[in-house]
Design a protein around this nucleic acid. Structure first.
Lengths: 167, 167
DNA sequence: TTGAATTTTCAAAAATAATTGAAAGTTTAA
DNA sequence: TTAAACTTTCAATTATTTTTGAAAATTCAA
């Protein structure tokens, strides 16, 4: 395979993968493009490369910045903004994990805490509901703790995790 | 909060959560409903509870069965099929992890292996592309291994993981 | 200040995904 | 067999999400 083809394939596949993960395709593609760009790139260049509109580029770049995985770069004597991505994969994964925790796990815990608090006196259905939601609450809390602990390692967390797992 | 309200809230929230995860809302809601049902339930009952069509119920139940987290139950003297969910959370998480690995991580690894194999001789761009995709390949492989190791524990993997993390 | 360069916003359009419902298919009791 | 009970399929519809593009906003050099 030759460079241009490989680049296309990488960007397209990353976009498709993103969709499966509930991340919009363009956002994932922009991220993929920035990941393989050695220099920071202008919005214009992103629009050209991915054949997307200015509005689309602007909105998805902002989303990536909100996630904390893309940064703005101001170049000497250039009015335009340039963008570059977090390239350290440990750091990238930690940021994504933290953001997803904030957006998904914490709200889920809140709901589970609320609904599992009902007083289940009467029916089998009520008792089972309380049981299951309590279990879920405990399970998700544990998972949340585990994630927090892992991302605390910060430097080379995946390597450290593997070591722990294999001994 | 009272039972019916809590039940609604749980099912609705689980559905919304599912959407964020690239899982269709109805599929997540059916799963939520089955999780809190002490007995296996008929398609009819699911349609009633969630106010969805027969086709929708049928298709999403099949998807849940394909994921290996919902089972069919054949009751003595009943022609209809009944459904129940995997209620053991360790088991549930392992099945989801394995399925997502198969559907997402493995294909990603395949792509990364392919595109990182280009011979990057000339430009800075090519060299950086190869570097980044190789790093990604290694990283995702490691993560895949870690997941596999963890899910191998099978019984109480989350508890075991936490112990390892905290010592 | 002004105005050209650049980015952001957002209503409308386009694309994608989910849902319905009725017809076709399957199963089983009689 | 038959036919009633039940499930699946899928084309058409509906809902949701994404994308566009032009107007509004912002920034900054002159």
């Amino acid at each position: 395979m030759e460079f241009t083809e490989a680049k296309q394939k990488f960007i397209q596949s990353w976009g498709a993968l993103g969709s499966q993960w509930g991340i919009n395709k363009t956002m994932a593609q922009i991220h993929a493009f920035l990941m393989i760009s050695p220099e920071s790139v202008s919005m214009e260049e992103i629009m050209d490369e991915l054949k997307i509109s200015r509005g689309n580029a602007s909105m998805n770049l902002r989303a990536l910045i909100d996630w904390g995985i893309v940064y703005k770069d101001y170049k000497q004597g250039e009015r335009r903004e340039f963008f570059y991505s977090e390239k350290d994969l440990d750091e990238l994964a930690v940021k994504i994990a933290k953001e997803r925790t904030k957006r998904e796990i914490k709200p889920a815990l809140k709901i589970l805490k609320e609904v599992s608090a009902i007083s289940a006196e009467k029916t089998q259905k009520e008792i089972h509901f309380k049981e299951q939601t309590c279990k879920l609450y405990k399970f998700v809390s544990k998972a949340d703790n585990a994630l927090e602990k892992i991302t605390e390692y910060n430097d080379n967390w995946l390597g450290k995790l593997l070591k722990k797992l294999f001994r």
